[in-house]
Design a protein around this nucleic acid. Sequence first.
DNA 1: CATTTTCGAAACGATCAGTTTCGTTTCGAT
DNA 2: ATCGAAACGAAACTGATCGTTTCGAAAATG
Lengths: 210, 210
Amino acid sequence: MTDPDHSPSQAPTEPCTEAARGPGRPRSEASRQAILTAAYELLQEKPLPEITSAALAKRAGVSKATLYRWWSSKEAIVLDGYFDAIEHRFPPPATDDPMADLRSHLRDAYSMMGGPDGRIFASLVASGNFHEKLREALNEQLNSPRCRDTQKLLVRAVEAGRLAPALDLELCTELIWGPAFFRLMTGAPIEDDLADRVLGMLVCGLGTKA
Amino acid sequence: MTDPDHSPSQAPTEPCTEAARGPGRPRSEASRQAILTAAYELLQEKPLPEITSAALAKRAGVSKATLYRWWSSKEAIVLDGYFDAIEHRFPPPATDDPMADLRSHLRDAYSMMGGPDGRIFASLVASGNFHEKLREALNEQLNSPRCRDTQKLLVRAVEAGRLAPALDLELCTELIWGPAFFRLMTGAPIEDDLADRVLGMLVCGLGTKA
DNA sequence: CATTTTCGAAACGATCAGTTTCGTTTCGAT
DNA sequence: ATCGAAACGAAACTGATCGTTTCGAAAATG
């Protein structure tokens, strides 16, 4: 019978970041980089389910054996490649104007979501629905940190008296990011001015101004 | 190769409800229903990619040939099964209180999203990322109609003076539905009171009260 | 130089979507 | 009644991809 495999063997996903101390041939750093690069390149060309381990190996110029020696699954490789590529983008702004920072942060995020990396992100999030490991990694390494960034900026705006005190920060974050997720998942484009429009409408509220 | 363009996609989705006109054995309505029911049952048990056509056929008590005689793909079958099951749920409310209607509409939607049907919806939306046909069908037959419902209620609330005039209805809708999509895609639960909290925060806005 | 480990090539076994074949069944039309 | 067109079930069949393994050769360390 089929059983939801869920890797019986504990994942060798442990990619000894540190140099091998023991004797013997050390891991090839060149291959590692080639694999991560190939993964990101392929992600730009096709959604995750259409990326085959064979194509990945071929693009990277390594064998499949090498892939599975260091990663537990195709998903793990591709995710690493994505993280590796986008790791140092969009550091949260930190000027002395909290609202400007918030707007700038949102613009960065929405700009990313609207471009090629957004499509990649969408395909990863979508795949997360079918691979709990993938979803968790995505949440822990991308979504949660980004949401924390947003919340820090929100807190600063509240402290500066620009936003209402006692805000539900988590809900705020979801309202802010919601439209991007909505469009990502429905396939609608994310225009350049969307971030500003979202922020504007959110700050003002839908209600009639008293 | 035989003509790959069997029937233009979604056409066989709506098979003759009436008896077949031409000669020959008419289509088995029992099989059709059994297939749709089986599809919905399987969707409740596992995400779409894990549903095999063989399992679908077995559950419905039909042969795979019958499946593909009437549907063009596994996705089309499953989508039909889902639509068939949820078709007549949650008609948009229409009392004389626009804001109450809006709240009630949102509660219904979020309640669905938070339950088993929401998980199914999530898996379908996620799969839509990898099947353009599926995404389009989902948008046309579910997302767009629901958003139109929301917008109608918004318009009525505006006309009643309960919401600000000249609202960007599309953006409003995305803000309203955004948090549900966000949670659906990150795997976070959707609590019973989320709809009210979203609506409350949206109507008031994040800004400091003037 | 010996040890240890990697690497590439290829093969393996399994699964799945979708198609085809074939013999049987069903029903409308004659 | 009966004929025949089309639907039906069972199962074989395509063609593709998957994760994983095996094996010998290459290479880096001590």
